[in-house]
Write a protein that binds this DNA or RNA. Structure first.
Lengths: 111, 111
DNA sequence: ACCTATTATCGTTATATTGCGATATAACTT
DNA sequence: AAGTTATATCGCAATATAACGATAATAGGT
């Protein structure tokens, strides 16, 4: 079947999973890291930086853009992408909300 | 061709992507949240809790176990799973390392 | 030893993802 | 307007994932 049964889960669980999916490819991690470092970059730079074809990178960028993780603006002939600050904060809060559920507990009464 | 070119990326990038992939399904998020809440649960409980088939949940648990995110011990007839504390800390640090690359910068010189 | 309850694995089907060549689109240059 | 450069989209092939029924394996009770 191969289709995720999203209706079985909460909105938050589906949202977290979708964001995690965006992070679930090293090329997209690399793109995000590059954007974090340079605070804006253009598609062409990435084709040099990573060893993937232009079409492939364009597709990864599209996925990140669809989730509003990055945003792009036309920079003459080329395209300038950067992190979307508000989405980034939201992602950070979502993940930290999950991470922090653990620290509250005693760590040792485990199996 | 559907195969990720892991050799193009750093060890950290591949590691982050692998962990993100583990989080990239709402059922696995739900399992993790349940484990965080109860600090140990049995496979059977999860079949009741989530609406998925036993085989499906067993498969999700296996994936989480393969990445050492959870660990299991035999509890009589059933199986008791819980979060692996050291892996959890490692994951938290990995993600926060990524998140914190952004706060250091001025947020507004963006596209 | 046999039955029962619980979890793991196998095999299969349906769908999703990755990667890229080829082509289209858009904008700047001269 | 023709050429150049940069990015996006299309279409395809290869691989990966999700889900589950059927079956195997394991442990406890009687």
């Amino acid at each position: 079947m191969g289709i995720t049964k999203t209706d079985l889960f909460t909105k938050e669980q589906n949202e977290l999973a979708l964001i995690a999916k965006a992070f679930a490819h090293p090329a997209r991690i690399a793109i995000i890291q590059h954007l974090l470092k340079t605070n804006a970059c253009i598609n062409g730079d990435l084709v040099q930086e990573l060893g993937l074809a232009q079409a492939t990178i364009s597709q990864h960028l599209k996925e990140l853009k669809n989730l509003n993780i990055i945003q792009g603006s036309i920079e003459g002939v080329s395209m300038s992408y950067c992190i979307n600050p508000s989405t980034w904060k939201k992602i950070k809060d979502l993940f930290n909300g999950l991470f922090d559920q653990y620290d509250l507990k005693g760590k040792s009464n485990c199996c």
